[in-house]
Amino acid sequence: MSSLTSADEALHAFAADVGEADPIAVEGGGSRWQTGGVLHETARLVSAPDGIVDYRPEEMVITVRAGTPVADLCTALAETGQRSALPERGGTVGGAVAVGENRLDLLGRGPVRDSVLQVRYVSAQGDIITGGGPVVKNVSGFNIPKLMVGSLGTLGLIAEVVLRTNPTPPASQWFRAAGVDPVAARNAVLRPSSVLWNGSSTWVLLEGHERDLEHEITALATIGDFAETEGPPAPPPYRWSLPPAEAAALHREVVGDFVAAIGVGIVHADTAQPTREVDPGIAVVAERMKTLFDPTGRLNPGRNPNA
């Protein structure tokens, strides 16, 4: 039986707060409040507990409550030379996991969905449910953490997660060049942490040992005239998700200003991504999932990641 320790009093208080009856939503940092639809005004707003519960740098795992600002997580990790896959944009850990958006340097950090090892959430029935486990490798039962990432709190309200952390590379530098083939740049280096392209310029983030960076810079020089730069370009407002090859074939005339993550397929553009059809077979499974986890539809009413 998974035992809830005394440190979990905050989780019990959260579960009591959530209750089991009325429409409810968790308010985090509000940085992605409109994602997946507009929350019904009937929903009562609650806050998830915050704070870092347990951090074991030598295990590369951290247990953190959902209401913790991502910025606080980053500060704690940075103190021991580590980092995580979560995006920093003013939100909370629970919000970042529930939305599931990845960082533009996903190639270096890994996707959010792979970083959540264990999740504890309050169910529609008001119970605290644990899925996954606190170790880096685990196939003990069904993969509840995967289901929670990107679910917008429609299957359960995330209370606490165990995240995989990673060592921060000893050196890190952005480079920029104009008029080069971004795919060639991506292929020239072994493991770029990010390759961004706006249709004319290419930005490359190289990370690793200093001497490896020198090696990679030499490789980049064969593609174009790359120079050190402060950081990546400011991304336009709308977020797209495309197969990598399609992202590398975008045109400004079609999508407006854009910044595309080459080799990944995340694109930020001036226009919204055309709506994608949901396969009817998938819709059936997704709807059944929602009904089984939240029979009365009380969790985050109005939001639907499957729409």
Binding site: E101, N143, K146, L147, V149, S241, V264, I282, A286
Partner: peptide, 12 residues
């Protein structure tokens, strides 16, 4: 694509 949207049924 990296963020196909919807529940991660693939991951499940």
């Amino acid at each position: 694509d990296p963020e196909p949207g919807g529940y991660d049924l693939r991951g499940a």
